[in-house]
């Protein structure tokens, strides 16, 4: 294919990705070093009222936004360097936390950014083995039942993955909310009142459980498809050689599925690191927040209608560092394969 024709085919897509992904990325990077705010000036007004002998005069000073020529409040942008990053990372507070008077990790986790980082990393790393484990179990179990029931079962297993994540989280929450059915069952079991949504740790467990419930179907479908392509000859020779069921699983099936396990792990790492919907669905912001939610929260207008764009950009850039670390092994593999092919 000639370069000109290639460009014709790829052009529109390339244009969109440049305009809406690459350019915003650069602009976020630049924004994170600048702060834009409205220009205010102090207006002193003197108001006098007639009085005996002398007027009573009061002087009041107010700050008012400066209006531009078109009547729109004027804004100015100036360079703050790493100021926005500092306001997120709070190095002074970190130093104080680890000083003699500080409380160490406890204090550190009171700072929003570290709180979000802690939750995001725990969430990503804890759900990973569970998703792969349950995905594998369901795939193996389904592969072990008669063909006739598999269709409807795949349909049911797939449901959690297809429905809107926020709706899934809400459905789970309504079961565990104060007078929900599972909350009542739990209270009956413990024979005491326990509000699962009101404690940070139990809420976190519920969020982990939800994510496994939501993503395991994806792992299941991939592994199930992989199981259909297991080489029958290899399997038969393993049986002839007297391999037990466990050995066949360990030495034939798992190695066959290994690339798929890597694939699922990578996709899951990328997606779990972006955890966001759970925070909204379970309204957990008082107890648990994630990195992406932190950026989102800075972008939502506050009570006076301002969006903290600069700090949101800084938080975005910090989130990106994690993505880059996650992607490095993947990119190295792709590069090696590319060299091998070329």
């Amino acid at each position: 294919m000639k370069p000109r024709i290639f460009l014709f085919f790829v052009g529109p897509s390339l244009f969109l990705m440049t305009l809406f992904i690459a350019v915003p990325l650069v602009s976020v990077f630049v924004q994170s070093f600048f702060v834009t705010h409205q220009v205010f000036h102090e207006v002193t007004t003197k108001s006098c009222s007639p009085g005996f002998m002398k007027q009573t005069c009061t002087e009041s000073t107010r700050t008012e936004p400066v209006l531009g020529p078109d009547g729109v409040p004027k804004t100015e942008t100036h360079f703050v360097g790493l100021g926005s990053y500092r306001s997120l990372l709070k190095p002074a507070a970190v130093k104080a936390a680890f000083s003699a008077a500080g409380n160490g990790i406890g204090d550190l986790l009171n700072i929003d950014f570290y709180r979000a980082l802690r939750f995001t990393l725990t969430f990503t790393l804890v759900t990973l083995p569970l998703v792969i484990g349950f995905g594998m179990l369901t795939a193996l179990a389904l592969n072990n039942v008669t063909q006739a029931v598999r269709g409807p079962l795949i349909f049911t297993f797939l449901l959690p993955f297809i429905i809107t994540p926020i709706i899934g989280a809400l459905a789970m929450r309504w079961l565990f909310v104060g007078n929900g059915i599972m909350a009542d069952a739990l209270n009956g079991l413990l024979s005491q009142h326990f509000a699962i949504l009101a404690h940070g740790w139990s809420l976190e467990l519920l969020m982990l459980f939800f994510r496994v419930w939501y993503v395991a179907p994806f792992a299941f479908v991939i592994f199930y498809a992989g199981l259909q392509t297991v080489d029958r000859d290899v399997m038969e020779s393993a049986i002839v050689d007297g391999a037990s069921r466990v050995e066949r699983l360990r030495y034939v099936i798992i190695p066959h599925l290994a690339p798929l396990i890597t694939f699922v792990a990578l996709i899951h790492l990328m997606d779990a690191y972006r955890v966001f919907e759970e925070i909204i669905g379970f309204s957990s912001q008082a107890h648990r927040i994630s990195l992406q939610w932190l950026t989102y929260d800075l972008l939502v207008p506050d009570s006076s209608g301002n969006r903290a764009i600069s700090r949101a950009s800084a938080s975005s850039m910090l989130t990106l560092i994690g993505i880059v670390i996650l992607l490095i092994p993947l990119l190295r593999r792709a590069w090696r394969e590319h060299l091998g092919r070329g």
Binding site: Q31, M270, T295, L299, L320, I323, L327, A334
Partner: peptide
Amino acid sequence: IAALIFRALPHSVLVTGYLPV
């Protein structure tokens, strides 16, 4: 490869870029 990297980006990062514009 660029598309792969773009796929991994959190959407909030991109929205931060769009909002002011």
